[in-house]
């Protein structure tokens, strides 16, 4: 199938980055691929115009966020695990896996919009103003969402640490 000029090249170059971002948002690899594919399908018919803009990747990222935030059911019906439930299973030699695993568990606990703010701020490295633009809200809202998310993450981290100590103490 012949796509719009440059679209395949863009996908070849950026798909990996989009999937990684989507993975943090959706907290599920399959869902992340779906999310990216849905965003690309939406952008595809408009690619000629989008590619002439100043930052096509920012546009695609915005579409991806929009798909994620507007999906009412699919992304919310996911397994939600208690952050401390599988501490023993994750206590192995693969420290980096544990870290990633815990992070995904914590992210799943956040409401979708707070998760998006955290991922955009601390993974995509966007400023609060840029996040506000992507999410279509005010910088103040970004700030408050970020603060709430950090409070929740701290609490989760605290619970996880306490449980971890209990597990260690019980041995």
């Amino acid at each position: 199938m012949d796509g719009p000029t440059g679209f395949s090249d863009y996908v070849a170059q950026q798909r990996g980055a989009l999937v990684r971002l989507a993975y943090l948002l959706a907290a599920d690899r399959d869902a992340a691929e779906d999310l990216v594919q849905t965003a690309l399908v939406r952008v595809w018919p408009r690619w000629e115009r989008v590619s002439q803009g100043t930052n096509p990747h920012a546009y695609v990222r915005k579409v991806l966020l929009s798909v994620f935030l507007n999906a009412r059911r699919r992304w919310s019906v996911r397994e939600v695990l208690h952050p401390g439930l599988e501490l023993e299973d994750t206590r192995n030699a693969y420290g980096h896996v544990d870290e990633a695993d815990l992070m995904m568990r914590y992210l799943r606990q956040l409401p979708r919009r707070q998760r998006a703010v955290i991922v955009l701020r601390y993974y995509a490295d966007l400023s609060e103003a840029d996040i506000a633009e992507v999410l279509g809200c005010s910088p103040g809202t970004v700030k408050s969402q970020s603060a709430k998310a950090l409070v929740k993450l701290r609490a989760l981290l605290s619970v996880g640490t306490q449980l971890s100590r209990q597990v260690e103490g019980g041995r």
Binding site: A22, A32, L107, Y122
Partner: peptide, 25 residues
């Protein structure tokens, strides 16, 4: 330090997106 931990955790988590499905999931 909190932000640094957060960034590191997110980067580690994001890297799992590229892992073969049967490795972790």
């Amino acid at each position: 330090k909190e932000e640094e931990l957060l960034r590191r955790g997110l980067t580690a988590a994001a890297s799992r997106a590229a892992a073969p499905p049967d490795l972790f999931d």
